[in-house]
Design a protein around this nucleic acid. Structure first.
Lengths: 118, 118
DNA sequence: TTGACGTATGTCCATATGGGTATATAATGT
DNA sequence: ACATTATATACCCATATGGACATACGTCAA
């Protein structure tokens, strides 16, 4: 077989730096394509293609407005990524250090009880 | 030009579902390659290749132990992803609704003052 | 040394990609 | 009807990928 399709899910959609840039722009509000083209200095067809990928994974929505198409962010599609990554936050954040200590103490206490108690 | 290299950063490394699986396995602790192979039912060369990508972006570290190589997770490389995604959490989480209301009220109050004040 | 084991690497293929250029489509204004 | 604007699509290319397979490499035991 061959390479996996990148259009498949949000993880793949967001792996492309330009698509992240587009989302960052749309985070500022609903915008027509040419707005994105101008801000990011990308070729218009390229932006349209990236927008299509983003649409297909549900990261953006569109609305017709005269001859322009207004794209808006739909961050809900990012939730799976957030959910997956946040479990690893422990690995780099100091925030969990205190919690780890407490859990360890609880574990010790429990083991002592299991040993002595009836 | 052509397609961007996927070996480039954590975003790309993690876009591949199998590599996420490997990280999930390693989240359970340091493990030799064959352990991963067995757990995920993947071909060994394939696992080695994925591990190489993960190594190159700093998501895993290795240690020699006899004839095996023990891989361990290094979640710090996931921080950029977490940082990028978390700014969008507002889009789907209800957690920010109250805050938004307060901010809106503050804004209203400010505008009233700007209009009436000296 | 020989052999078994654990892992990495090289070669091959099919495919999907990002980007460029040209063109189609659609809406608006004249 | 025609031109202009805004966007999408079609076609092409170079390239990197994931996967399968075979093989090389390194370590340990007999």
């Amino acid at each position: 077989m061959a390479r996996a399709a990148t259009t498949a899910d949000a993880f793949n959609a967001v792996a492309e730096p330009r698509r992240r840039q587009i989302l960052d722009v749309l985070a500022g509000g609903e915008r027509p394509v040419n707005d994105i083209v101008a801000r990011l200095h990308l070729a218009q067809p390229l932006v349209s293609k990236h927008l299509r990928v983003l649409r297909e994974v549900g990261l953006v929505g569109v609305r017709d407005h005269g001859r322009q198409r207004l794209y808006r962010l739909d961050g809900r599609a990012l939730k799976p990524i957030h959910d997956w990554v946040k479990d690893y936050e422990r690995s780099w954040s100091q925030r969990f250090d205190r919690l780890d200590v407490v859990l360890e103490e609880l574990k010790q206490t429990k083991e002592e009880n299991d040993g002595s108690g009836k």
